[in-house]
Design a protein around this nucleic acid. Structure first.
Lengths: 197, 197
DNA sequence: CAGATACGCTACGGTATCGTGCTGTTCAAG
DNA sequence: CTTGAACAGCACGATACCGTAGCGTATCTG
């Protein structure tokens, strides 16, 4: 069995961190397509040679940087679907308004349209961002708040889709009124006590 | 008063059409960022000099081509919100699945994030694509099918957002089941006879 | 302290892009 | 037929980018 505890080497860590930080900065400022290795090297002070020592290609670096984009979301537990949804959507709206990754997403979607590796990264990102929604809806189903036959994915598509639509398509303000309207509509649409269609 | 009826000149029309056609092709295949004037010239047979005679810059050509993307949507009139919505969303889902502009949209959103001219073009495109939805909801409000105080934009965000979400984010199948679920949820959420929240 | 390792610097080679001149040719209009 | 407009083809300059190579230096580890 080989030595498992490898020595980190400060220099490597330092270079990697500087490169990733600058990549992240350019990413959120210029979008995925307009990130340049030369510019990363210039701005970060890390030699281009060193960059290619740690990442085999530009694509690898970009995918590595992108996969660290989304933050970890706290899953609320207010014991009601309405409360949980409001918390989740308020947080998501806040991030869409202020977080830097919000400006990067379209360029990722664009690249994912034609690049398999990017598509896989985007799928993983999407899964991790949306998992709190699945959990919240499953718990609501367990409490009998929504029809057990309703597919949670449809609900997720409507509530998350509404926010994404406002952020990138209609450019409508992502304020409290909007979030509340979405929450109320979603809760009312699939509450278990409404007459079956 | 100067001569108003200008001669079209076949040659000019022919060149413009060929360039726009090839631009459109590259656009839907490679996305907005990866359209090259040199390549357009090669593939269309129109000299690069001529291209720059008709469009002052690459950006102008791209915006011109993009603004011709969306088709004109037929506004249904089934006398019920449910019927109208189903028709609209079925059509939109079909286009999202097959139309070539569907693959271009992310690159437009990306460019719009940083380019004012693209943003204006995208706003106009969005308005023209979404106007049928506004009309349908306004008519439903006139018939008393939805609460008159409900803002149609919220409903539009939910139904259109759901489809966009499925197309570009979750990559879920845009089939009849999905469309029906969205329609039913939207109708049920804001029907006028549900108890006020 | 000494060896190993990571690093910075500089310079490539190759490709792609935009936008512009210049020259000669084709085509439409009068 | 004549004339002028629109065209193609080609070359150019400038810029930017990727990924690699050589060489000397700084830094970490043992």
């Amino acid at each position: 069995m080989p030595e498992v505890d490898i020595k980190p080497d400060k220099r490597t860590e330092r270079s990697k961190a500087a490169v990733l930080a600058e990549t992240y900065r350019q990413l959120s400022q210029n979008g995925l397509a307009n990130v340049s290795i030369d510019e990363i090297s210039r701005a970060s002070g890390v030699s281009k040679t060193t960059i290619y020592r740690h990442w085999p290609s530009r694509s690898a670096l970009l995918i590595d940087a992108c996969s660290r984009l989304g933050g970890n979301v706290a899953v609320p537990d207010t014991k009601t679907l309405q409360g949980d949804l409001r918390a989740l959507l308020t947080d998501l709206a806040e991030q869409l308004r202020t977080a830097s990754w919000s400006a990067v997403v379209p360029s990722i979607l664009d690249a994912a349209e034609r690049d398999v590796a990017v598509r896989e990264m985007q799928t993983a990102w999407h899964k991790s961002v949306m998992s709190p929604f699945e959990l919240v809806f499953e718990r609501a189903k367990g409490r009998g708040e929504i029809d057990p036959e309703t597919c949670p994915n449809y609900l997720i598509a409507m509530v998350a889709g509404a926010l994404f639509y406002a952020r990138w398509f209609s450019r409508a303000p992502l304020d409290t009124r909007f979030v509340d309207a979405i929450v109320d509509a979603a809760v009312q649409a699939h509450s278990a006590d409404t007459p079956a269609l």
